[in-house]
Each structure stands twice: as C-alpha cells, then as structure tokens.
C-alpha cells in the first residue's frame, strides 16, 4: 500500500514536472525578475543597470501626480463598469435563461463584440465618436441636439467616459454568458417550488437565482476587477491616454514609461504596484462577497 502511494507520488512528479518547469520558466521566474528589475534604473536598451533600491517606488508614490491620475481613471473604470455591467448582465442573463423566442440569437448578438479583436473594436468606436462623420454626432444632429456634437475623444470632460462605454459594450457579452451558464445550471424545480409558494418573478430572482449564482457572480466581479485595472489596448488605440492625460491608465502609462521614455526600471516598478493592486482589490472583493455557499 505504501509502495503504491510512493509510486503514485513519483508518477505525479514525473507527469507534473514538465508543466511546472514551463510555468516556472515562463511565468514565475520573469515575475520574480520583475520585482528585481523594479529596484534599478534601466533604459532597457543595454544590460547597463544602476541599482537605486526603492527609489522607483518612492518616486511613483510621492513624486508622480500622473500615477495618481492614472489610478483614479482605472478606479473610475472599475466603478462605472461594476455599476453597469453586473446588474445589466444579470438582467440579460436571467431574461435569456427564460423561455423567450430566439434566445440563441440574442446570446450570439451579445457575445459578438467579444469575438472582435480589441483593436478593431477601438477603431470602430473611434469612428462612432468621430467629430465630423461619427454616428454619435449625426444622431445628435438628427434629433435636433446638434449643438452637443463635439470631438468626443478629444474632449477632456467626455473622453474617459467614451472609452469606458466602449469597454462596457465590448465586455458585457462575456459576463452575460458567464452568468447565463450559472443560471442555466440551477435546477428548474427550485423555480417551480417558489412559484407554488406564490413568489413573484422578482422574488424568485432575488431569493433563488441570486443565491445560487453567487459564486459565479463573485467570479464575474473578480474578472471585472482584473479587466478594468489591466485595461490597455482599447485606451491606447482610441486616445493613447490623451488629451492631457484624461484617459491615461496604469498600463498605458507603464507602456509609455517603458517603451517611449526608456524608463524600464520605473515601468517595472509600476507593474509590480499594479500586480499588488489587482491582488489586493480582488482579495477584498472576495472577502466582501463571502457568504455561505448554497449547496445544490
């Protein structure tokens, strides 16, 4: 018996080793290396590095107002997305889970933005917001609000909101499908029972659907945190962080520091901070959403 166990362990090690080695080499080691590089001043064009200790972090937190601006933009992204995406996706998911006509078609339609490349989405929406031939301005003009027409992505007050709306449009389908799968897995007799007890559809949503998809909902929130704190491609293509930093996010700033301004050490320090931030916010969210799991 013990021999058998021993054998099993050996087999496990043998089978896991290649995967672990690859994971270690291409994920763990580079990440640890990032923590190390963050302690240097490095232009990223040669091996010449100068050790500066925590100087990069000190500057980031005490001498760089743009960092705080970026952080506030990411949090804005997170909050607005949370307030819109979670309720909306929950709503659509529960509607689509019901017996409505052409549910399959709608599911496809909602998921559709998700299969377009992010660069194409960004380009598409840049045209929507375009000052002279954008649909948004045409729409405003056609309903007599032509005076509101503007160059949306160049307008300090609206640029961030415009990018956030695009991001929501892009990601909503994903959350709908995620929650839909959760709702679909709820056995129908729960609903039948609640209907027999005279529950309204809101009550059965509130007391049956929500508790039973809670774990999925938690997952969705954590995804949302990761997505919004890591946002890059959309912003970079649509505005490059402009005008005047009004849409600059942590990662566009990181990219600019590394690849435009040749401050790889500083950029890496920023990367470490973003990593810690995402980890921290996700843990907090997980903690806040902790409740007894309802076993089926």
């Amino acid at each position: 018996m013990t021999l058998n166990k021993h054998h099993k362990l050996k087999a496990a090690v043998v089978f896991l080793a290649p995967a672990l080695a690859l994971y270690g080499m291409f994920f763990v080691v580079p990440m640890l290396q990032a923590f190390y590089v963050a302690l240097f001043r490095w232009r990223g064009v040669s091996i010449a590095k100068q050790f500066v200790g925590i100087e990069n972090f000190r500057k980031l937190f005490t001498g760089d107002p743009v960092f705080w601006q970026c952080l506030s933009h990411n949090l804005m992204f997170l909050i607005v997305s949370f307030l819109i995406v979670i309720p909306l996706s929950l709503f659509f998911a529960s509607v689509l889970a019901g017996h409505i006509r052409a549910a399959e078609v709608y599911r496809g339609v909602f998921l559709f933005p998700n299969v377009i490349s992010i660069v194409a989405v960004a380009a598409l929406w840049s045209f929507v917001y375009h000052p002279t031939f954008g649909i948004l301005n045409s729409l405003l003009k056609s309903i007599g609000l032509g005076r509101l027409a503007t160059g949306w992505l160049g307008e300090p007050r609206y640029a961030l909101l415009c990018v956030i709306i695009t991001s929501i449009w892009y990601s909503l389908g994903f959350y709908i499908v995620l929650l839909l799968a959760g709702i679909k897995s709820i056995p129908t007799y729960f609903y039948e029972a609640s209907a027999l007890d005279g529950a309204s559809s809101w009550q059965s949503f509130r007391h049956v659907t929500i508790p039973l998809v809670w774990e999925i909902l938690k997952l969705a929130v954590i995804y949302l945190i990761i997505h919004t704190l890591n946002i890059f491609g959309l912003v970079w293509v649509m505005t490059e962080g402009g005008p005047n930093y009004h849409t600059e996010t942590l990662l566009t700033y990181l990219y600019r520091q590394a690849f435009v301004q040749s401050n790889f050490g500083y950029a890496t320090a920023l990367g470490v901070v973003v990593f810690a931030l995402i980890l921290g916010v996700s843990l907090v969210a997980g903690r806040l959403m902790r409740r007894e799991t309802v076993e089926l």
Binding site: S126, Y129, H130, P131, T132, A149, T150, G151, W152, L153, G154, E155, A159, P243
Partner: peptide, 9 residues
Amino acid sequence: FQKGAMGMD
C-alpha cells in the same frame, strides 16, 4: 480651428 480637431488622429 476645426471643431473637434482635438479628437482626431
């Protein structure tokens, strides 16, 4: 300046 130029690439 053209209106909206700020929003153009």
